[in-house]
Design a protein around this nucleic acid. Structure first.
Lengths: 198, 198, 198, 198
DNA sequence: CATGAATGAGAGTTCATTCAT
DNA sequence: GATGAATGAACTCTCATTCAT
């Protein structure tokens, strides 16, 4: 049967899943535990999600969708390419800084899923990577970045650095100020890409 | 009950584990499947490893240990900091390029393990990160890199970029030439870190 | 809480149940599927039936009740014992021939129920078996059948043969002409029972 | 993985399944209950059977296979067609009379399974029906039975009668002497089929 | 009368680990 | 040392039934 994809319980279940996974880890997050956290019966989850995998993908889609939307919004207000990249990094760090649970889930726990699920998660990330690409292209276009940059490599450098930094922050129990790293990270990246005609 | 950590079967079992995990994925790699691939009985595995987790950690330790040793060896032959960093990147890409199975296991499959196991894997990586750190420090020391670099950030930038690039290569079924990316990746990184006194 | 046993929806639900069970099989005939087929809400079914078992029994009672009434009616018009038995067989075959869905449900699907339910179904069949018995007794009485017949055995022979023939017809997807078998079946039965004083 | 289809536990599990199903009914015969009855762990059942359905089919195949083999053996010792048919009926009644549990399982419980499983059970029965057919053909051939008999109908008459009689005996809690019915049932059947050239 | 969202008990199956041989 | 048969805990999902609206 088809499932309802909205309603207050839909949100409540997703939030409960984030909480439970952050607290107990992916492999210890049984449906019954999530249901209890959400204050619903086990069966109720199946009124809103096809199965457990569907819940996890929905979780990622909802949370990352909002994450990406907000980031895009903010970037559009920036004029220069440098500010756009800075905003990208800042927004990434900010949004995960204010939601430690979500950070744990996206950086650590959801990566423990099987290949199939990770592929679907990858699709959600596509929009994010396209956003990164658009900034890179604009930078090249405006001669702020070197003309012969390999987009793919630059994208992996930006994303790899941000991701590794965030993961490191999460694994250190959020002990340092992640947001404060946005500026120096940005500097190093820009520095690497910058066009310096001699 | 302590276990034997050497002997021909020890190696055989680890290699079998790599093969099975690369082929079937982490969650489809049961002890019995690994035993069959290794040509031993299920119980025999427990003569050499405390349990399944111990086998996986040993696998990572053995394989990454050799990986790091070889990398350190090669770097010692390099004079300049630039060449050392280049060698680090090249060795990383080369060693995974010649062993697709290992690449799949370290980049994709072993990340599906639980927090506890990943923490132990992290310890193995410490030596690698210390190697990276030593290069960075040398670069700063020799005024090749900016004096005020945040070591931690630079380390995450280097490792994050290399890791993300490799993962991307694995997820694209090793379709592009990973080794060829060493030079451009190196250029961008060095470019970012370089000291440019005005 | 007592239920209503009449009204247009009562019939509609029973017919929906026959259709759904014939199409999807007993174990794939959930209340919600029957409700959808009947064009009512799940809960509505519980206004007309105590529970699912009650619905199935009611289904059998309604359908078989009419089946038996019609058969009795027709038999009353027959004079000879031979014709009465022939009519019994013909009516059985005819009524199931014109309603393939009902045939599937009574011959195959409703037999997958538990002992308790089948016992109740057995009670509905009692009237049918009494009808058979009355024909046998009349046959003996009129010296058409052997005087020392074991009623029980003869009843089981008649019912077993008719039932097995019908089931075989259903399992062969109604591919042969069931009604055409009435005459030869009747001949063999009568032949077996006939009184032949030497 | 493939399963072992022999060994003492194989037999023990099948016998336990018969006992449990006879006692608690098909739908109340969980794997754990069967395992307990067999004195093995739940998982052990899966060393010998692919899944629950496989266990049920194996049960039927083993028990009915032996049933049919014994019946064929016994029939081969009979000279006349009449005696062969009598032996068929007697053996059927005898073998179920001495094993009340098996009778309950084959007559009542195993019929509650889904269509798919019943189809596989049907295949096992094929040999039995072929045996019946061979007797019928021999009877016609030797001019003991009428020359124009419809084999299919006769087969259904024989099987339907035997089956209905047995089921009736089981549903009456084995209260009457089933074996004693073999003779009169046989008489009625033979009587029905006999060739009487005028 | 009718609805349909919510409930929650219940069971087949997998697989890491043990231990008698 | 090596074997592999046996163990048994653990979890997702279905669906008959209820009851507030």
């Amino acid at each position: 049967m088809t499932v309802k994809r909205k309603g207050p319980k839909y949100e409540k279940i997703i939030d409960a899943a984030v909480t439970v996974i952050a607290k107990h880890g992916y492999h210890q997050s049984q449906i019954s535990k999530i249901a209890r956290e959400a204050g619903v019966a086990d069966g109720t989850i199946y009124l809103y999600f096809k199965n457990k995998e569907d819940l996890l993908i929905s979780l990622f889609r909802e949370k990352m969708g909002r994450f990406i939307d907000t980031t895009i919004d903010e970037i559009e207000h920036q004029k220069s390419v440098e500010d756009k990249l800075l905003t990208l990094i800042e927004m990434h760090f900010k949004q995960l800084s204010v939601d430690h649970e979500l950070a744990i889930v996206t950086q650590l726990e959801l990566r423990q899923t099987n290949r199939e699920l990770r592929a679907k998660i990858g699709e959600v990330l596509k929009r994010y990577l396209e956003l990164v690409d658009s900034i890179i292209l604009e930078g090249i276009d405006q001669k702020v970045f070197q003309p012969n940059l390999d987009i793919r490599i630059v994208r992996q450098m930006i994303f790899g650095t941000i991701d590794e930094t965030t993961t490191s922050w999460v694994m250190n129990d959020h002990r340092f100020d992640l947001i404060a790293l946005a500026k120096p990270v940005h500097d190093l990246l820009i520095n690497g890409f910058r066009y310096r005609p001699s």
